[in-house]
Nucleic acid binder design. Structure first.
Length: 308
DNA sequence: TTCCAGGCTGCCT
DNA sequence: AGGCAGCCTGGA
């Protein structure tokens, strides 16, 4: 048996952390091998001491997908120096922003609204298994691609609700239809200016500002895109407790604070905070100890910090 | 059991 | 412009 091609990343790389950092939701691990699909291609990857072994799949496609060309040492040289960003870098060193296919990235993040990662993963795998094209077998298990827009558009809403999509079912259907009927100009999303691309993303049903930025960061590779989710909003509360958290001003603030590769900082912070404070109440406890108490807790959380 | 999770949409001021 | 309720489901 010929040895697998070995890819050498530019700077640090952690395959496991990258594939498990909330960018993609369908890769599975067994015996040190990560198995999944990139578009319609089976990928089996293993991290060795010298690099990344591509045991199944096109090495060039794998290197592109894993963004092994991103010069992380150079990126770390200009990393923000505030305590949270430094802590995030210490824990997430080697995580890369992947280059995902546009449609499956879009569809996956439409289904992610108000869902925990475990559930997003379950939905993603169910959609692939039930409706995606099989791209190969690994360890006697079939691996599936994400179903195409044209195929998803033909499914009844009840079928999407059956995999647990809930109110997101009609949104995903409408998005699939919009893609299948060429109502979305993907050239603008991929090659337009930031503003043009964002506006085109917002035409997609079920896509708001947060998901649009996920698309720009994880599929288009725009490192200046900053998805602001609940975790990043918590970071904002620490940095500017008197400011508004929901407006576009928040994004401008983060861009100024995190620099041109703000998307990378965002991803590290997201992963770091979720892993460190993901337990119920852990973030509230952290804030009581170290955080800034000036801002009153939101109505949503009030019962936690102010028991009646 | 209750709470809340990587939001979007439509409607309100 | 910005705030808010409602929406489905399942994990902790």
């Amino acid at each position: 048996m010929t040895p697998s091609p070995c890819l050498i990343p530019k700077g640090p790389f952690s395959l496991a952390e990258t594939l498990d950092s909330g960018q993609v939701f369908h890769f599975t691990e067994g015996h040190g091998e990560w198995v999944g699909a990139w578009d319609h291609q089976l990928l089996v990857l293993h991290q060795s001491l010298s690099g990344v072994e591509v045991r199944v799949g096109d090495p060039e496609a794998a290197a592109h997908f894993l963004a092994l060309d991103h010069d992380l040492d150079r990126l770390y040289a200009t990393w923000p120096t505030d305590p949270l960003s430094v802590g995030a870098l210490a824990q997430c060193r080697g995580i890369r922003i992947l280059r995902q296919p546009l449609w499956e990235c879009t569809a996956t993040f439409i289904t992610s609204a108000q869902k925990q990662v475990a559930h997003i993963r379950a939905i993603s795998l169910a959609l692939r298994t039930r409706h995606g094209r099989m791209v190969g077998l690994w360890d006697a298990q079939p691996i599936h691609a994400y179903p195409s827009p044209a195929l998803l558009a033909t499914l009844p809403e009840s079928e999407l609700r059956a995999v647990g999509l809930g109110y997101r079912a009609p949104l995903l259907l409408a998005a699939a239809r919009a893609f299948a009927e060429d109502q979305i100009d993907t050239r603008i999303i991929l090659n337009g200016t930031k503003e043009e691309a964002l506006a085109e993303c917002l035409k997609i049903p079920g896509v708001g500002v947060k998901v649009a930025n996920c698309i720009l960061l994880f599929a288009v590779g725009r490192m200046d895109a900053i998805p602001i989710d609940v975790w990043i909003r918590r970071v904002l509360e620490q940095y500017r407790p008197q400011g508004r958290q929901r407006t576009t001003g928040a994004e401008a603030f983060l861009r100024g604070k995190f620099g041109p590769h703000a998307g990378y900082v965002q991803q590290y912070l997201y992963h770091y905070l979720r892993k460190t404070f993901g337990r119920r109440g852990a973030w509230e406890a952290f804030k009581l100890g170290h955080g800034n108490p000036r801002r009153a807790p939101s109505r949503r959380n009030r019962s936690i910090t102010e028991p009646t």
